[in-house]
């Protein structure tokens, strides 16, 4: 479904991604783990067209995303929950969710998706009128995730959904990720919390300063000594 080939990205003179390749198959939950500054966010931004790429290709169901303007990518069924939530702080919870469905015009299906998101996140329903900027970090993460689900995406990119959350909320977010996976949504998950990420994923890639150093079944990586030492604190 998603295929990244030999991707190179620069920030000025900084070579942030040095020819990385990865694939995410239909219905798979794949995680991309790595230390701070490894290039995980850069990878997701390149896929979503928020960053120009120097070379390589990104294919979604065989379609070259380089040829698609960044704001049109969501119409291809790819949604992105960005690092740091990026909710619209001065809009209410429900306005944020409706913005998630900006590309849709059919009020019925918008309402259906709104109900579905409120079912996933009852807390958002309680706070539907509250300004997003006044939500707690965990609630903002739920909102950003819910917003991405408003278009019925086939693939969701999630960037550090557990960042800055209490252990209890981290568990809640991961259980939502598992539910989405079970419901057939393809997910590319970026996490610094490698332990949790590997526990829920089918496969994983390890990114080290712009290069993929390891990849494989999540279970196998979780038992790999190098991974355990570097990322699982074992």
């Amino acid at each position: 479904m998603l295929e990244v080939n030999n991707l190179n990205v620069f920030y000025g003179a900084i070579h942030a991604l040095k020819g990385i390749s990865l694939t995410v198959g239909d219905g798979e939950l794949v995680s991309l783990i790595g230390a701070n500054g490894a290039g995980k966010t850069t990878t997701l931004h390149a896929i979503s067209g928020l960053l120009p790429i120097a070379s390589g290709s990104i294919l979604l169901d065989g379609k070259d995303l380089q040829k698609v303007p960044s704001h049109k990518i969501i119409s291809l069924g790819l949604a992105h929950v960005p690092e740091g939530r990026h909710v619209f702080a001065r809009m209410t919870v429900e306005e944020n969710l409706r913005m998630g469905a900006y590309i849709q015009r059919d009020q019925k299906s918008i309402q259906k998706n709104l109900d579905k998101v409120y079912e996933y996140f009852p807390r958002l329903k309680e706070r539907w009128k509250q300004l997003a900027g006044t939500l707690s970090g965990g609630e903002q993460q739920m909102l950003a995730t819910g917003r991405a689900l408003m278009t019925d995406p086939t693939i969701v990119l999630m960037d550090e959904p557990s960042m800055g959350l209490s252990p209890l909320l981290v568990k809640e977010i991961f259980s939502i990720i598992e539910t989405l996976h079970r419901n057939g949504i393809t997910i590319l998950l970026v996490e610094q919390n490698a332990k949790m990420a590997l526990a829920v994923s089918d496969r994983a890639y390890v990114l080290e300063t712009g290069t993929i150093s390891m990849s494989g079944k999540a279970e196998e990586l979780a038992n790999d000594d190098r991974v355990r030492k570097a990322y699982l604190g074992a």
């Binding site: 704001h71 969501i74 960005p82 990026h86 590309i103 278009t151």
Partner: peptide
């Protein structure tokens, strides 16, 4: 950036 991700 978030607006772009919404399709705007």
């Amino acid at each position: 950036a978030a607006a772009t991700l919404m399709g705007i």
